[in-house]
Structure formats: C-alpha cells, structure tokens
Design a protein around this nucleic acid. Structure first.
Length: 421
RNA sequence: GUGGAUGUAGCUCAGUCGGUUAGAGCGCCGGAUUGUGGUUCCGGAAGUCAUGGGUUCAAAUCCCAUCAUCCACCCCA
C-alpha cells in the first residue's frame, strides 16, 4: 500500500503555516495582555489522568475514543484527548495552589480522539485551551468567556455568538436525571437508540439529541436551567449580567449539555454558522470539584478549549485576509560559474541581519530576474564579471526597475535603508 | 458505528459504447535570451488510472472487496 497519513491526521504544509501562526499569535497576545500564562504539558499521560477527569460516563471513555496503549514498562498511557486533565495534573504536581489566586493558564497543541472523521473533525487536531483556577464566583466565569470571545475575535472571526447555560450542581443534576427518567421511561420505546442508552447512563445528555422523535418528547419537559437551586441560579444570572455589561453577545441555551462529566453550573459554547455540521468552534465550563477528584486541593475552576482547525475553516468562510508569505529582502543572481560561490558566501554573510536567497547555479540575467521575481523579493542583486572587478553587485529594484551598483561592504547599510523605506 | 457520493500527473479536471501508445489547463524543469524580470513562444519530466481480486480476446471504463476522502446521522473542537 502507498504510504499515506493515518486516517484523521493531516500535514500542515508551508503555505498554511502563516494561518496557524496568525491564530496562535493573536490568541497569545490576548492572553498575555490578560495575565494568562502559557503552559506546555505532555502529549501523553497516565490513562488515569483522563479517565478520572473526563468521567466514566463520558463518550471519551464509553465510546473508547481515546488512544490508549501499554508502554514497555507496562504502564497504561493515553494520548491526550483534552487539555484539562493534564493541565490540572501539572497544577497539582507543581503546587500551584500556592501561587497567587487565580491561576490563569493557557496552552495549545495537538489533541487525539478516535472519532469518525469528517471535515472539521479529525483524530489529531489542534486545540487552544485555557484554565482559570481558584475562584468560585461568577466573575471568573465571565472572564473566561470574554477571554475566549476576545481571542476568537482577535483571530478575525465575525458573527460569534456565545451560547450560555448551566448544568447546575451535582444535586441539581441528580434531581434532573431523576426527573427525566421518571418522565421518559414510560415512552422509552419511542426514543432513538442512542437516547435509550443515555436514559440509563446519563439522562442529561438527552438534551443533546437532534432526533426529531426525541425532540418531540423533550418539548414538553422543562430543561436543566429551570431545575437549578437558588445558588446555581444566582451564579448563572451573575455570569450573564457581567457579559451583558461587557456587551458580549449571549444567547441563553436552557438545555445546554457538555460531553464531559466534570462540568458544574456554567456551561458555554461558541458557534459559527456556515462551516457545515461542525459548527461548534469552542466549548467550556466550570468544573468545581474536579481538582479535588484528581487528588489535589479542593479548588474551583473554569476552562475552555477551541479547535484551531475549525477556526481556520471559519476564517476561510469569513474571508479574513491573512498576510501572505513574504519574500526575502534580497535575491542574489550569479551570472557566471565563479559567481555561484561568491553569491552563496555573500548570502550567508548578509543572513546575519537580512533574509537573503539566491539562485543555486549560473543564470542569465533574464532567467535570474524571473527567479527573483518568483521569490517575492523586492530587490535583486546581480553578480558577474563586471561586478567582480569592483567588489560590488548590480542591485535592481524589482518594482521601480531602477538599478545601481552597490559595493559589497555597503550592502548592509543599503538594505537597512531599503527596509525602512 | 449507520446511510450516501467520490478516487485519473504535484493541483483542478476531461476521458464517448469496454478497443492502438491515457489527455488538457495550472504548476515544475529546460530553451528562445553568455547582461535585464512579470507577457509570449517552443520543448521536457511527471501516471501502479487509490489498492487487491474477478468478468472479458481486450478494463481507467463492468463486478466484488479493501483503503482513503467528502456529505449527512451520531458526536464534538
């Protein structure tokens, strides 16, 4: 069989690199200005990190969507299917409980999930992730959401809407699950196959179903948001009012449900129309209790992640102009065999301060200038017998067509001046 | 995991009814041009027709399987 990338993985070719740098760069600058510090965690962890963080009934675990293997020491290792588990493991391991509160961390890198592939959904994909740890009140939830919103805006996306809801506290969830079971068990035969399983395992997730039959049954039931305790309700209203105050467009989604079991209270997503079925760009929520569950101090937290691949798709839809790959500052053309080496030596010298490329063999001026043109350089430097005599280059401005002799020694000064112009 | 579509040069795609040596545009390389580019002209390289099997005198073309991609479900980022 022909060698090819594994299903669900893909190469990021040189001409796409600028897009990635654009997104990571813009996000990084929003984070830096907001006091969020970057952290890198391993791409794989002990499997337990993720089974304990994602939760036993989550799809990651239940549907066996994790890339898990046994290493040579007999340890069960898993390629990270999310950032939160690893970041919180690092938080605990490095005693960040002693850092000033809140601890604000962001990361980006590849994530692995063994799901069915489709455009916008890959098995290795790139996420940007953010965790804000240590504060219980609604203000930090609102900051998390605004960080996410501002980061995506900074990338150039328009028409973003935050879908905000609350899954309540564990007691609210338990109450709601009980309520759903009681209401739907009599109709369980009418439910879709997937939803029958949900009814047993995790009834809350029924609200995720897009099956028309399921929707019909759910229509008359009250969604999770209506089942909140007073405290959770106040928390939700608090988040909402901060976001309203900051003029972030919010759509309340009373039936919002997240895939991972650890969410408490605040849950949110950001969607973008027009990128097909995979419209969710980002998601996140509050996870009080998770750090304690992982064996750390009992601290609250809130976090989110967005998929860089999908953001890039959405940017293409929004036709956001991303600066093209720029060419070198100078392109050198050797006009005879002897000049090939001379030009290479000169390029190496100039590369201490400038971007310089050259033809790798003797060129006639016409062909050489075509090479220079294609490289995207604004200036071409020709070197032949005449220039050798005077230790100079014939430097041609490829836009104006003007050209002049520049002594080798004067090239750095000349390029600096040209760069400023 | 389910349903559907697709797979021909690096890219986008033609390829008739199954019939000789599989084509085009773009791109790439060279030349026209041993001192001046973008245009133009000429030439060249590049194909396991996704892979494997089958039917046939003969398969890119028909059949089966596998792999991959895309769309939807599902799920999510």
């Amino acid at each position: 069989m022909k060698l090819q990338a594994v299903k669900g993985t893909r190469d990021i070719l040189p001409n796409r690199q600028a897009f990635w740098h654009h997104v990571i760069g813009r996000v990084g600058s929003v984070m830096a200005r907001s006091g969020v510090r970057e952290i890198d965690v391993p791409i794989f962890e002990h499997t337990e990190v993720f089974t304990r963080s994602a939760g036993a009934s989550s799809d990651l675990v239940v549907q066996k969507e994790m890339y898990t293997f046994t290493d040579r020491g007999g340890r069960s290792i898993t390629l990270r299917p999310e950032f939160t588990g690893g970041v919180l493991r690092a938080f605990i391991e490095h005693g960040m409980v002693n850092w000033p509160t809140p601890v604000k961390l962001w990361s980006h890198g590849p994530i692995f999930r063994g799901e069915q592939v489709q455009r916008g959904r890959y098995r290795q994909f790139h996420q940007v992730n953010c965790e804000l740890v240590g504060l219980p009140g609604p203000l930090i939830d609102a900051e998390a959401i605004s960080l996410l919103y501002d980061a995506l805006r900074a990338c150039g996306l328009k028409d973003l809407v935050v879908r905000l809801g609350s899954v309540g506290d564990p007691e609210d969830r338990a109450r709601h699950n009980h309520y759903l079971r009681a209401a739907l068990n009599p109709h369980r035969e009418a439910l879709s196959e997937a939803s029958k399983t949900r009814l047993v395992l995790n009834p809350l997730r029924l609200w995720d179903s897009k099956d028309p039959g399921d929707q019909e049954l759910l229509k008359d039931l009250t969604p999770p948001l209506e089942h909140l305790s007073n405290e959770a309700r106040d928390h939700f209203e608090g988040v909402k009012s901060y976001l309203d105050d900051w003029e972030i467009p919010v759509e309340v989604d009373p039936a919002i449900v997240r895939a991972l079991d650890y969410y408490r209270r605040t849950a949110f997503e950001i969607h973008h129309s027009a990128i097909g079925a995979q419209s969710a760009l980002a998601g996140g929520g509050r996870y009080d209790g998770l750090i304690g569950h992982l064996g750390g101090p009992d601290l609250p937290g809130v976090g989110w992640a967005f998929g860089v691949d999908r953001v890039l798709d959405a940017l293409t839809v929004d036709e956001v102009g991303i600066p093209k790959e720029s060419g070198p500052d100078l392109f050198l053309i050797p006009l005879d065999e002897e000049a090939v080496g001379e030009v290479a030596r000169l390029a190496r010298h100039l590369r201490a301060a400038f971007r310089v490329e050259h033809s790798y063999r003797r060129r006639n001026p016409g062909r050489g200038l075509r090479d220079a043109e294609r490289s995207g350089a604004p200036l071409a430097g020709l070197r032949g017998a005449a220039e050798r005599e005077t230790h100079s280059l014939t430097v041609k401005d490829l836009v104006s067509g003007e050209q002049r002799d520049i002594l080798e020694d004067n090239l750095p000064a000349f390029l600096r001046k040209a760069g400023r112009a």
